[in-house]
């Protein structure tokens, strides 16, 4: 028999990545919910292009989305902070702490409610490193580099001469080969290997501009409100299990591939030089904070959190 409720969910990920970052959880949801509800999972750009993704969700063309705020360009005050907010977090566990204990969760919930979208749950993904054709060993190597990256990260990296390029996620590998791109600043090394970018790049920069990507699940507000309470709970459990899977998958994967990976050579920019990037990021935070009171509030939380972590000392922060 047909399930009573069906949702269409589109993820930002292509098939290879979705195999880890969302599919196991959704399949589990479907097995448990059975005839009561099924979520049909679609990959990046499969039903609607990413540029129309937020609107499609808001209008109920699709029912749920897995994405970061930044790349789907949500028309909210918090969009800048989704994806990679430069130097906002160092470890993947920072993200759930920020959302659950430092109040980001509530701000997100309120901001999305204003535009008719239910913010379901935020989780951490991998850190943001460079994968390139040419080795990067100093900031100078970044000049003129055409890099696929997130909008906000691109805006920040432009300060160092990077030329940010936005194309559909699924076209990145091809664009590396057709010469549209020189590199990718989008993910950690696990993702580089999983989605095939390691095959078209040769070098991996160990410095990152953010320790964890902030991504979320969203739903159309009406469609979410129509769910019975126990399915809402099941949905919550599903997303938590998806976040948990990524915690160990990325954390272990990053270390493993740095040590055992054969497709990419590791390079580094010396710490002292990289410190200028971090200093520049803090200036960038101030610029963002001036844009609106809500943004100022979020920046304040990031500052408070990072200060607390520094005070807590090892293992939270070293040096």
């Amino acid at each position: 028999a047909k399930p009573k409720i069906t949702w269409r969910m589109q993820t930002y990920a292509g098939p290879a990545l979705a195999e880890h970052v969302v599919k196991p959880a959704i399949e589990m949801f479907n097995r448990i919910a059975g005839e009561e509800m099924q979520i049909e999972l679609y990959f990046a750009d499969q039903l609607v292009p990413t540029g129309e993704l937020f609107r499609a969700l808001q209008k109920g063309i699709i029912d749920a989305v897995q994405s970061d705020d930044d790349s789907m360009a949500s028309p909210t005050e918090v969009t800048t902070f989704g994806g990679y907010f430069p130097f906002g977090s160092r470890y993947s566990l920072d993200v759930p702490v920020l959302f659950n204990q430092y109040g980001l969760g509530q701000i997100w919930e309120e901001e999305y409610a204003k535009v008719g979208v239910k913010h379901l749950s935020a989780g951490a993904w991998d850190p943001c490193h460079f994968a390139t054709k040419k080795p990067i060993t100093s900031l100078n190597d970044l000049k003129g580099l055409r890099v696929f990256t997130f909008p906000t990260a691109g805006r920040f990296l432009a300060k160092f001469g990077v030329v940010p390029v936005s194309i559909p996620w699924e076209d990145v590998e091809m664009a590396m080969q057709t010469g549209e791109l020189d590199g990718i600043a989008w993910s950690g090394i696990t993702e580089d290997y999983t989605v095939g970018w390691a095959n078209v790049t040769d070098y991996f920069l160990t410095n990152n501009i953010s320790g964890a990507w902030i991504g979320s699940f969203f739903a159309n507000m009406d469609r979410y409100n129509e769910l019975p309470a126990h399915l809402k709970d099941l949905l919550q459990l599903t997303m938590d299990s998806s976040h948990y899977y990524r915690q160990w998958w990325y954390w272990g994967g990053e270390a493993n591939l740095r040590v055992n990976g054969t497709k990419m050579k590791l390079t580094s920019i010396p710490d002292e030089e990289w410190a200028t990037v971090e200093a520049e990021a803090h200036k960038f935070w101030e610029t963002i904070a001036k844009e609106s009171p809500t943004k100022a509030k979020v920046v304040e939380i990031f500052k408070k959190y990072n200060a607390d972590m520094a005070k807590a000392g090892r293992p939270y922060r070293y040096g």
């Binding site: 750009d45 039903l47 609607v48 292009p49 540029g51 129309e52 499609a56 209008k59 109920g60 063309i61 699709i62 194309i167 559909p168 076209d171 057709t178 549209e180």
Partner: peptide, 21 residues
């Protein structure tokens, strides 16, 4: 389709715009 299906043909136009090749 259900809600919003009528807009799918247009979203295809935005998708085609992204197909830069």
């Amino acid at each position: 389709w259900g809600t919003g299906g009528v807009e799918i043909p247009f979203t295809a136009a935005m998708k085609l715009m992204n197909w830069y090749p």
